[in-house]
Amino acid sequence: MTRPHYLDALHGVGVLSSLARFDPHVAGTPPLGLDLADSDIDVLCHAPDPKEFTIAVRAAFGNHPGFAARQWVSGGRPVIANFEAEGWTFELFGSRQPTEEQIGWRHFRIEQRLLSIGGEALRTLVMDERRKGLKTEPAFAAVLHLSGNPYEALLRLETWSDEALADVLSWSIA
């Protein structure tokens, strides 16, 4: 059975409308066109009050298969909830930090920029690494020959101009 496009799944479940007051942003591999069969749909939210977020998420999605919510004990104590619907696994991430400042969103934005500049050649190379088992950030780091922690290495590219990124891509994907 084929699962629906991720946007259709989001709409069908009503994720964005149910979480509207938490400034939801869809991130991760499906909007990048880098998803695999087991990829999930990540929704990053601004949840200044973790208890309120947890209550809202449980009320909206608690009846879905696989529903679970937990709160990290470190790193600002975000709430993560998962559930299954429309053939997808959803992961909702609620942090006290505004959505656009969250590390996950920042990674997503630099990956979008890189793909915009590197085009299909970059997408193909990153997908090759993903099919070998690498997560998204390590796959980008491998293709771009970035040293050190791949998550930190990608964030270092965040302030680079498109021209500087294009230079890195020209020798990385040649």
Rank of each mutant, 00 (worst) to 15 (best):
residue 70 R to W: 11
residue 155 L to A: 07
residue 109 R to G: 05
residue 2 T to W: 00
residue 31 P to Q: 06
residue 160 W to L: 11
residue 82 N to R: 06
residue 127 M to S: 07
residue 172 S to T: 06
residue 164 A to E: 01
residue 118 G to L: 08
residue 55 I to H: 13
residue 81 A to Y: 04
residue 69 A to V: 12
residue 152 E to Q: 15
residue 81 A to L: 05
residue 39 S to M: 11
residue 60 A to G: 14
residue 4 P to I: 12
residue 143 V to S: 11
residue 75 G to I: 00
residue 96 R to A: 05
residue 98 P to D: 00
residue 105 W to N: 08
residue 1 M to Y: 04
residue 89 T to G: 08
residue 89 T to V: 13
residue 166 A to W: 00
residue 80 I to V: 09
residue 68 A to I: 08
residue 171 W to Q: 07
residue 39 S to F: 11
residue 112 Q to I: 06
residue 143 V to W: 12
residue 107 H to T: 05
residue 88 W to V: 07
residue 33 G to H: 07
residue 172 S to G: 13
residue 139 A to P: 05
residue 165 L to E: 11
residue 88 W to C: 06
residue 80 I to N: 12
residue 72 W to F: 13
residue 152 E to R: 15
residue 168 V to I: 15
residue 10 L to E: 00
residue 26 V to S: 10
residue 116 S to V: 09
residue 152 E to L: 15
residue 16 L to V: 04
residue 167 D to P: 11
residue 134 L to W: 05
residue 93 F to R: 03
residue 7 L to T: 14
residue 172 S to C: 13
residue 159 T to W: 02
residue 65 P to E: 00
residue 163 E to P: 08
residue 140 F to P: 01
residue 66 G to P: 04
residue 143 V to H: 08
residue 134 L to V: 06
residue 106 R to E: 00
residue 103 I to Q: 11
residue 135 K to D: 04
residue 85 A to S: 10
residue 95 S to Y: 02
residue 102 Q to F: 06
residue 135 K to G: 10
residue 93 F to I: 03
residue 161 S to D: 09
residue 171 W to F: 14
residue 24 P to V: 10
residue 79 V to R: 03
residue 99 T to C: 06
residue 149 N to H: 12
residue 4 P to C: 12
residue 141 A to H: 05
residue 131 R to E: 11
residue 28 G to A: 02
residue 81 A to K: 03
residue 152 E to N: 14
residue 3 R to V: 14
residue 103 I to H: 08
residue 20 A to H: 03
residue 58 R to W: 00
residue 120 E to D: 11
residue 66 G to D: 14
residue 44 L to F: 14
residue 26 V to C: 10
residue 115 L to A: 04
residue 105 W to L: 12
residue 172 S to M: 07
residue 47 A to I: 02
residue 9 A to W: 00
residue 169 L to A: 11
residue 132 K to P: 13
residue 107 H to N: 07
residue 29 T to R: 12
residue 23 D to A: 15
residue 37 A to G: 11
residue 29 T to S: 13
residue 85 A to T: 02
residue 77 R to D: 05
residue 170 S to K: 00
